Amino acid sequence: MKKYSLAIVLVLFVFCVPLVFTEIANSYKEPFNILDNPLPSLVLTVFSLVLITLAWVLVMALKKVELLQNEKDGVTPEVASSSFMTWWRQLMQKWTKSKSMEQESEIVLDHNYDGIRELDNTLPPWWVYMFYASILFAIVYLVRFEVFDGDTPEMEYKKAVAEARASLEKYKETATDLIDASTVTLLTDEKDLKRGKAVFNLNCAACHLADGGGSIGPNLTDEYWILGGGIKNVYTTISEGGRDGKGMISWKNTLKPQDMAKVASYVLSLQGTTPATAKKAEGDLWKEE
């Protein structure tokens, strides 16, 4: 059962590694730039080492199971001198320089404290190489950030924020759902005005009449405006509503931003027209700057 459990864990790990690494790499603009973004490369290296270790553990486990089964059955298997396990042992010996228990007498020191002896083990080559690699990394880091004035994390953050804001502003220029009073523009396309007229007749004509002459609401065809004329002011009035207590309601929770922009443009297209029953002018005379 343990054999199958280990195999299942290994298979899941193999499938999860690409997904995790892809997610991490996608969060960086240049994921394989080791100087600026060392994390993806570090994660890939660690995952690779873990994968190799798991594979080795699996091979050792299967080999152990096989040996136990042969011992139980009384079978003495022939060991090939050039087998994978022999190569692996030689590799591990080369990278660890470890001594077997039978060879410990060769490296035992004279130190003796209550029968406790000390072994003069050499540093494992893998540890020595990692130590040298850390020194090399420190030198590269020093040159990168102290000599050539590389971007600090704070500078990288500010640049990333500036790029994000620029991308957001560019997106807002084309995203109709993000129209607001500061970005709305006057629409003159016949299709947009036709849509604005339909929305106006459905929601606004009850108070302003279909021709904009005004009833409960003010006349929309003259040059006088209570809350200011122009596309931005008209859009704001539609979105936020009129005067407190006696103005029209806010439509921002009912109409989409693009529809409010089209209604505002249609309302301004009524300027200068002659309604059937024009209501008396209200507000102040508006002139575009």
Rank of each mutant, 00 (worst) to 15 (best):
L285Y: 12
E78S: 07
V140Q: 07
A261Y: 01
F32N: 14
D189H: 13
K63D: 09
I238E: 00
K159Y: 01
G228V: 08
I238F: 02
M101P: 06
L39N: 03
W95I: 14
P18N: 10
T254K: 11
A281K: 07
E23D: 04
I116E: 13
K252Y: 08
G214M: 03
R144Q: 14
A278H: 03
M260T: 05
K2D: 12
M101S: 15
K3V: 15
S98K: 15
K64A: 13
A264Q: 06
P77Y: 06
E154M: 04
P275H: 03
G272V: 09
L168T: 01
N70R: 06
W87R: 13
E30K: 09
P153W: 03
S83G: 07
Y4G: 08
T188E: 11
E30Q: 14
T183H: 04
L35T: 07
K170Q: 00
E104D: 07
L123N: 13
V267T: 06
K232R: 13
L142Q: 05
A261V: 04
V17Y: 08
L51S: 11
N203I: 07
P125F: 07
N112T: 09
A281C: 03
A162T: 00
L168V: 08
D259V: 02
I116S: 07
E190T: 11
N112V: 08
A276P: 07
Q93Y: 10
L220W: 03
L91N: 11
T277I: 15
N253G: 13
S105A: 11
L62Q: 12
N121I: 10
M85F: 08
A25P: 01
F145Q: 04
A166Y: 00
D189V: 06
V59R: 13
E190F: 10
D149M: 10
S83F: 09
V57C: 13
F47E: 03
Y28K: 08
F137Q: 03
W251K: 05
L187M: 12
G247Q: 02
E169M: 01
P124F: 07
S265A: 04
D36S: 07
S265L: 05
P153E: 01
I238S: 02
F21T: 05
L268E: 02
S269K: 02
K158G: 03
P38G: 02
